[in-house]
């Protein structure tokens, strides 16, 4: 068991590997991985992620450097050079580590995270928001706009049929001007969008990677979320909660238009 030479080599190999891993994580971590940003609150989320990346990267780097140094330095010792830390020193090191982590972790949550979380989830949409009702079903997004009267028609599950996927009650007059669409959502740039998320069957998840929006649609509940797109263009909509064998192809599109284009599209849609 006592082949010292092979241990010295093993110690050095391990130390080099650990150092390489540390540097590799930092190098690969510093590249830009996040999809391009296209919403206001997304900036806050990106700051949170970047802060955590930087802080975690720093801690990973120091951890691996120290670990590699220990392996290199003490790998070749045949007599121990330090035996038992006093309880005081153990407690000191623990407290130091806890303080650093508390500042990074809890500090990050309270200082950077909570304001964004409160704005995104815990606040109601501003009155100027364009309301869109998205009803998920197994493997499609039913989109509905309130139309000029600003009110959504009543829906009841009993009326659902092939040509009436949302079960809109035809007798309800506010339903007559509702505009229904499939898998494509049209919104106006720099104008808040309030999404009323519902589901007909299983749990899906309304995920806009570029706009940093994700909210599960829970059957039996109508969940409101709002965001402000601040870049025009088409962005992809994906489902982020396992919903059956079509989960991977439930692709939708969010088209962010200028107000004029949106009005033109609305007119075209109403009498088209």
């Amino acid at each position: 068991m006592e082949n010292r030479a092979s241990y010295r080599v093993a110690g050095k190999c391990l130390a080099i590997t650990v150092w390489l891993i540390g540097l590799g994580v930092i190098a690969s971590g510093s590249r830009r991985w996040l999809p391009s940003l296209a919403s206001e609150h997304g900036a806050g989320i990106d700051v949170m992620i970047r802060f955590t990346m930087a802080a975690a990267g720093a801690m990973i780097l120091t951890g691996h450097m120290v670990l590699g140094f220990f392996l290199w330095r003490f790998g070749s010792q045949n007599k121990i050079s330090f035996r038992l830390a006093s309880h005081r020193m153990e407690r000191a090191w623990s407290v130091a580590a806890v303080l650093v982590m508390a500042v990074v972790a809890e500090g990050g949550v309270l200082v950077l995270g909570m304001p964004v979380w409160a704005k995104v989830f815990a606040s109601a949409a501003p009155s100027s928001a364009l309301t869109v009702e998205v009803t998920t079903e197994q493997f499609a997004w039913n989109v509905r706009y309130a139309g000029p009267d600003g009110k959504f028609g009543r829906t009841s599950p009993q009326l659902i049929s092939l040509d009436n996927p949302l079960g809109v009650d035809p007798k309800d007059d506010s339903a007559k001007d509702d505009i229904v669409d499939l898998n494509i959502i049209h919104v106006v740039v720099n104008r808040p969008v309030k999404v009323r998320l519902r589901s007909k069957d299983v749990i899906h998840s309304f995920f806009l990677p570029n706009l940093r929006v994700k909210q599960d649609s829970m059957p039996g509940m109508t969940i409101d979320l709002w965001f402000v797109p601040n870049k025009t263009g088409t962005f992809e909509l994906a489902c982020a909660e396992l919903c059956g064998f079509g989960h991977y192809e439930m692709r939708g599109i969010l088209i962010v238009m200028t107000p004029e284009d949106f009005e033109k599209w609305l007119l075209e849609k109403k009498n088209g």
Binding site: F152, R154, R196, G220, M221, T222, I223, D224
Partner: peptide, 10 residues
């Protein structure tokens, strides 16, 4: 919350 948001709620 489930009770409040059930049905057409929101």
């Amino acid at each position: 919350r489930v009770l409040r948001l059930s049905g057409d709620g929101g």
